[in-house]
Every structure is written in structure tokens, then in C-alpha cells.
Amino acid sequence: MTITLKVNGHDHQIDADPDTPLLYVLRDDIRLNGAKFGCGLGQCGACTVIVDGKAVLSCVTPVLLLDGKQVTTIEGLGTIDAPAPIQRAFMEEQAAQCGYCIAGMMMRAQALLQRNSKPTDEQIRAELEPNLCRCGTHMRILRAVHRAAQLMDTAELSPSLEGSVQ
């Protein structure tokens, strides 16, 4: 079956079984690296992406449900040369060890910041509860999300930094 999927602002015609989880379409068909396979069970959050503004576990979301929806992955936020605020924040806080869980963490945090630009520490912790990190980078991840909130605040005042955010 052919499905039209809007990913990071671009339309993709995908030929996949309707039960195929979004994760495999993103990785296998569209060749994106950001969403990671961690458990395939919706238990770890490594595969988290944003669909219509909400954090979604792509490993347990059939592509069938996504016709016409807007999917955003970490690649859609910014690039190494023009990083989005949250990407800058994670770089500046050096918030990664192996980094395998980090893109999923960032996408869940991004979804939070898009609906609540000034979250409390408790809100950030509660939001990130579905996502696991095994290296123990949690303290840095929390700091990076706080920093991202500040950077987004600043970015609103200086439009030049907004260009990379879709």
C-alpha cells in the first residue's frame, strides 16, 4: 500500500504494509537516523518523534495511522551548522555519553517546549519519564532541556536563529 507521509516538511510516497511501524519507514524508506530502535515495545523512548506536535513512540505506531500527518524527527529541527535551540542546548551541556537515547529524549523535550515554553523542573522530569538512558546522563539531559527553554526564549527575540526550526 502507498501512503503519503509528510516528514520534516517534505512529502514522501511510501510503499509499505499498513502495519509497518513508523520507525522502520523513517529509518528504512526515508533513510533517517534520528529515531532509534531500542525495544520495539514502547518501553524506552529511543524511537520518539513528533507527530502533529505530540511526542509519539514510532516503534509502536503503525504508519497506517499517519496518512496526512506531520512527522518531525531530529533531522527536521536543525543541522550541525544551523542547530535548533534544543540541539545547541544538548551540545552546550555536553548532554550525551553514548548518545543512543538522546535524539528520543530531545524530541520528547521539544514537544514539551512547543506547548509549554517555561516548564518547571518537575514538569520536565515527568515528561521524560517514558525515556530511558543507560549511561546515566540524566542530570545533563535535564540541564540541557532547561537551557533549550532559555534559548528558545531568546530565539523568539532574535528571528535570525529561528530559520532552522520547521
Binding site: 533517517l32 537516523n33 534520528g34 532509534k36 530502535f37 524527527t73 531530529i74 533531522e75 529541527l77 536543525g78 543541522t79 550541525i80 542547530p83 540541539q87 544538548f90 551540545m91 555536553q94 550525551a96 548518545g99 543512543y100 538522546i102 535524539a103 530531545m106
Partner: peptide, 18 residues
């Protein structure tokens, strides 16, 4: 700053999985 982090936070091919 770590040399590998920029790619890891922007979706670069960083892992054997990629």
C-alpha cells in the same frame, strides 16, 4: 566539547545501526 556529539544530536549516521 566532544567531537561526536554534534552528529548525534542532529541525526548524523553515528552508529553501526545507521
Amino acid at each position: 566539547p566532544r567531537v561526536d556529539i554534534p552528529a548525534k544530536v542532529t541525526g548524523g549516521a553515528s552508529y553501526v545501526q545507521d
